[in-house]
């Protein structure tokens, strides 16, 4: 199945504005983020060494915010959109 990941701010710089990725059926939001992380040189921006999504990553899925801890519990469907955003800090 195919899901689209849209990135903002620093994530967009590292992984592009939007990517469509191919995932086996039954994949979770966490799987999608890990797959995306592997497409760029800055994987550690999104995941740690244990492939856990970093705590600051804001994940939006079906208009809801998903906690990085819960991302492995949410199963994706073909055509889904995931939005990733790092909190920005400048003023």
């Amino acid at each position: 199945m195919k899901v689209t990941i849209r990135c903002y701010a620093r994530f967009r710089d590292a992984f592009g504005e939007e990517q469509e990725i191919d995932l086996p059926p039954g994949s979770t939001v966490r799987d999608a983020v890990i797959t995306l992380a592997k497409t760029g040189p800055d994987a550690e921006l999104l995941v740690d060494d244990a492939q856990n999504i970093r705590s600051y990553v804001m994940i939006m899925y079906h208009d809801e915010r998903i906690s990085p801890i819960d991302a492995g519990l949410i199963t994706l469907a073909d055509g889904d959109l995931i939005i990733l955003f790092p909190p920005v800090s400048g003023g």
Partner: peptide
């Protein structure tokens, strides 16, 4: 609350 970086903001 507001914050910015590059071309992005929240």
């Amino acid at each position: 609350h507001g914050a910015i970086e590059g071309f992005s903001g929240q």
